[in-house]
Design a protein around this nucleic acid. Structure first.
Lengths: 248, 248
DNA sequence: CCCTTTCCGGGAACACTGTACCCACACCGG
DNA sequence: CCGGTGTGGGTACAGTGTTCCCGGAAAGGG
């Protein structure tokens, strides 16, 4: 069936023919990672199957394994690719402001890529771009103290809080995406159970929390936690000139 | 095939016969949850398949669906079952000590059940036992302030840090279990890459961290973070009598 | 005691998943 | 022109969660 075969002599078949698809361009590792990120952003980590990625960039499934050893490596590459898209802001000399700014920036990134937190929670993130951000964070904390152990502790503390706080936020957001329910609808669903729980009287504080507490945005709650945290770091590191990390 | 059927007349067949297995006891939801927890503890969340759970308690796979609507609900029940196994310690009047004690207790639990953090990160945990702990935490924070919004913020802050910190710890522990490598072996594996990274000179702070920083146990790091955090809460809540959560 | 009805255990099937193996085709140096 | 090598990709395998349905046991009523 060559291109000049019998078929082309039938005039109508010329334009309606299925072309062999211009091979969408050779699937380099970069293109694979990029397609995977857009897919995961749009439909979540569960939708990120090797078959689906291959289909999205118009190649065969097993061809991906020429460029990536497996799904795990692909995830790792995705993390570092995202780390490579944001440039750390230059330091200002104010460790507190710098750490806060970094935390806010990372929060934005984690919210933009809802799968990121889950992936980073299971792997150490040693890619070059991730390392650059880590280095920058240590430099920021270095403005507070020259003790590298202490600085690392502070960075870990901020990172841990960031991971935990955003994880909650993303969980909610993703639950909505998966179930297709708005928050209103979800509230309506669990409403009866919550009411029952409250009226049981067994959880007075929780009841007070549900009934009386002001509604805060996730942003407000994050800022409150971040402020407490940095305040605590300041207090701990100033007072305990004699090693707050507890060396021997 | 009644018990007195033709087979029992063949003498040798009587004792060697396969008995229909005393139905291991009817698989109540409690037994299912218990089996699932021990399985997940031993072999991780990935090994927790419906087929495997059913096999472990000697029942058919699809029978489980009589007691549990699906894997997701099973996970939720597992979480609450674990919450039901620990009784919150009575309050002492010292909010700081109480919150710290709770955080430490929860850390132990999360380390004992390495899958717990991952599951709780995606679901809200509204089971009665989980609610009891939540209520207790709010009561502890209530010793600091009567503002329930502020108390909730503090509880969330501690919880977020807890989740983030333990997640890192568990990730390491689980990676070892999955790969079967000790930490030594893992270090040896990435060692060359780390050396290369350090010698590149592009990450001076990270290099300093690797080379100079004191090795801390996870426990020490957790305690440092917790101390900072509570110190910050104290500072923020004492000074800002006028609403540190930022109401209008 | 028998019959009926309800409930429950569980097998088969479906649409997926990651990935190892292997075959065929295109390109490229000799 | 011709062999070798690298690359695209189909097939197959051992799993996964879940739905549908069937057979049989227990329980309730006459």
């Amino acid at each position: 069936m060559g291109a000049m075969g019998a078929e082309s002599s039938l005039p109508g078949r010329v334009w309606g023919r299925e072309r062999p698809t211009p091979r969408r361009q050779a699937p380099t590792v970069g293109r694979i990672v990029e397609a995977s990120i857009t897919l995961a952003d749009a439909e979540g980590l569960d939708a990120l199957s090797m078959r689906r990625v291959a289909a999205d960039l118009g190649s065969g499934t097993t061809s991906l394994y020429r460029y990536v050893t497996g799904r795990d490596e692909l995830l790792e590459l995705m993390v570092d690719a995202i780390a490579g898209k944001t440039e750390p802001a230059p330091l200002t000399g104010d460790w507190r402001a710098d750490l806060a700014a970094m935390a806010r920036g990372h929060r934005e990134t984690l919210l933009r890529h809802p799968w990121l937190g889950a992936v980073m929670a299971t792997r150490p993130a040693l890619g070059p771009n991730s390392l650059r951000h880590m280095d920058h964070a240590l430099a920021a904390a270095g403005q507070l103290t020259s003790d590298i152990t202490l600085a690392a502790g502070v960075v870990a503390l901020v990172g841990d809080y960031l991971a935990g706080a955003v994880s909650r936020e993303v969980a909610e957001q993703e639950a909505q995406r998966r179930t297709g329910l708005t928050e209103e609808q979800w509230r309506a669903g669990v409403g009866p159970y919550i009411r029952e729980v409250i009226e049981s009287g067994a959880y007075p504080q929780f009841a007070r929390r549900v009934v009386e507490a002001r509604d805060q945005t996730h942003g407000e709650r994050f800022e409150f936690g971040l402020a407490c945290l940095l305040e605590g770091v300041a207090a701990t590191c100033v007072s305990g000139a004699a090693d707050p990390t507890g060396a021997a």
